[in-house]
Amino acid sequence: MSDDNKDDTGAAGSEEPRRGARGGDGRREEAPRERVIRTPSPARDKELLAEGDISAPAGAGEQLDEASAKRAERVVATFFLLAFAGSVGFIAYYIGWSGRDGGMHGVDRARESNFWLGGMMALSFLALAIGVTIWVRRLMTSKPIIQERHLPAADEETRAGFNEDFMEGAVDSGITKRPLLRRTLLLASAPLGLAPLVLLRDLGPLPEKKLRSTFWAKAVEEAHKQGKKGVRLVVDGTNRPLRVSDFSSPGSMITVLPEGIEEHVPEEQVLTETAKAVTILINVPADEFKPAKGRENWHVNGIVAYSKICTHVGCPAALYEQTTHHILCPCHQSTFDATNAAKVVFGPAARPLPQLPLSVEDGYIVATSDYHEPIGPSFWERG
């Protein structure tokens, strides 16, 4: 082999590492170039939005394409009108259709009401949000804002500058230039401001005088017409009349109702009347019982009856501590003393549990009258 060939081969071999190796298909693979420190990043040359895309906000001093802006304005106005329709539909359904056949407080229609009310409110907020987003993306110019921070007190020059910047921002937003957007935005927002006022209805109707008497009054009246002393107490769930001998163990508690409530009340009102008349019967030891003045004859050998509806917010006061003879409401821990006319000893309740007058007839425990004060939370009394 000649020296010339050796030199050529050596030269080729020396250049091969700089150019890179050949691939399997015979083409030369370029070695990756490393970025030199302190050089601009190549990512700066890439843009997420095309230069002529109207969705990219115009920079400072640039003018929007008025034809595209008009189309965007109509789209935004359409969404604002859709938001207005959704909120008006919410109010109309809440006041109108949801009030029929028991309304939102009816168990059978709760799912339907939640679906339509939630759907229309979601539509209103979603359409409003989409409209505002398109407005910002397509109709507002984009310019850098530099805010200098000084002492909190502002002089006249600063206030004048703020007013100038505010008016300039209003012009840039297009709210002064585009009355269609301004009017439809106000139209869409107005019903949303009224919606919370409409929802005050969900606090429930005022009870008026409906809670000033319960089925105990009607049942006692019917018993008196039949020459009886009062209406018998029946065990809730079994409707079995309760004898004094059946409830002779001190420290026990049971839930009772007036006899005949299911037979003498229309079917659609049974649950309501039962909830109002539900009563707890407690056997307090005779040596610890302290009847209130004027109520010395309202018990039967220490057996007393109180309304089960807590006087705080109406939860069932269904817990009883045998050692302390305290009645407890599990919702907010209101505590009542069963030995002393169910007076409040702890918690947010404002007044004692109403007491039901009791007596005995033919060995059965009977109620001789209705509660002498309204049952339920104290604020219901104002109805």
Rank of each mutant, 00 (worst) to 15 (best):
I375Y: 00
T214H: 11
S252G: 02
R71W: 02
H332D: 13
V231L: 01
V76N: 10
V132Y: 04
L81S: 12
T323C: 07
D25C: 06
A77L: 03
T238E: 10
K293M: 06
P32E: 12
R182E: 01
Y306F: 15
L211S: 10
K276D: 10
S87G: 05
E34H: 08
V270K: 15
P241M: 09
R201H: 01
I303Y: 04
T158Q: 14
A318H: 02
D25P: 00
S245L: 12
R33N: 09
V107A: 14
R28I: 01
L203F: 14
G20P: 05
T339Q: 09
F90H: 12
E164V: 07
D7P: 01
F166L: 13
R38M: 11
F125V: 11
V256T: 07
R71Y: 03
D246M: 06
S248R: 12
K143A: 15
E208M: 15
V171Y: 01
L200Q: 09
L185G: 07
N163I: 14
G169P: 00
K225D: 13
S68A: 11
K228W: 03
S68E: 07
A318G: 02
E267F: 07
Y94F: 14
I365C: 06
K70R: 11
G52H: 15
L199S: 14
E62Y: 07
V88H: 00
D287T: 15
E29Q: 11
T176E: 04
D155L: 07
L151I: 09
F80M: 15
A219M: 08
H332R: 14
L242Y: 01
T214G: 13
G23Q: 11
R71T: 09
P377K: 13
L123D: 05
T255W: 03
Y364T: 10
L185C: 10
P374K: 01
R182L: 10
E381Y: 00
A367W: 02
R28L: 02
W216A: 04
G99H: 01
P330F: 13
T176P: 00
G314Q: 04
Y320V: 09
V304L: 01
D236Y: 02
L257S: 03
G169Q: 05
G302Q: 06
D202F: 04
R27Q: 11
V345E: 11
L211V: 15
M140W: 03
L192W: 08
N283T: 02
A127R: 02
I303R: 09
K218R: 13
G59K: 14
F115Q: 12
H325N: 13
L200N: 09
S14I: 08
P17K: 08
K143Q: 14
L211C: 08
R138W: 04
G61F: 04
A341Y: 00
H332G: 13
Q147C: 06
E15F: 14
K177C: 01
R295L: 03
K143P: 00
T274Q: 15
P152T: 12
I130S: 04
P316D: 13
